[in-house]
Design a protein around this nucleic acid. Sequence first.
DNA 1: AAGTTATATGTTATATTCTACATATGTTTA
DNA 2: TAAACATATGTAGAATATAACATATAACTT
Lengths: 97, 97
Amino acid sequence: MFKKPYELFFKTLANEQRLKIINLLRKCPKNVTQICKELNFNQTTVSHNLKKLKTCGFVFNKKNGKERIYSINKTTIKPLMELIDKHTDKFCRHLCC
Amino acid sequence: MFKKPYELFFKTLANEQRLKIINLLRKCPKNVTQICKELNFNQTTVSHNLKKLKTCGFVFNKKNGKERIYSINKTTIKPLMELIDKHTDKFCRHLCC
DNA sequence: AAGTTATATGTTATATTCTACATATGTTTA
DNA sequence: TAAACATATGTAGAATATAACATATAACTT
């Protein structure tokens, strides 16, 4: 009935900058400017990437005056990353550098 | 110490043809020719894609005479897909078509 | 209201990935 | 050993994604 958008999800996760944003937000919520500064990324790229992450439900945001606070969707991201970590340990030691 | 290859994993999963191969192999192991025929893909593309999936440990293969039987890594793929399904249901109804 | 700060969006050159062609390698069969 | 079959690999044009520039929008400050 419903086609599941696996490809969109994985494409969205398959980007170094977005992965770094995800990793940063796992610690605590931050606004766009903070994300830019801490990762040394430019603002337009970060906004574009946050939009993609939001479309996929990997991050949420809320308004606070003129700033937007972005937070991670822990329900999905935590077990997802743990699963990948377990997979790497068990099947992909050869890929570690 | 070890950098985890998240980006490589997600890039490898972020491809329609590879997702279809994964989906096919979830049912049962198959050789390259069977995969090509059932999905109507050309052989060189399938071999290239199987190689990428194998590098990431998402599929395994074994020799049987001149053919190679590919099978899915259920340990990772099953919970991964279930996680994505749960995520879609809960956070991404809007993405369903 | 004008200026400033914070974030979002449209667009495009560049970089990356995909797909298929050509061909190589390996295995079985006649 | 030659032919046939099964799969893998090198490569390049086509397709797609990325990142940054220019600019728009929105909210706060004076």
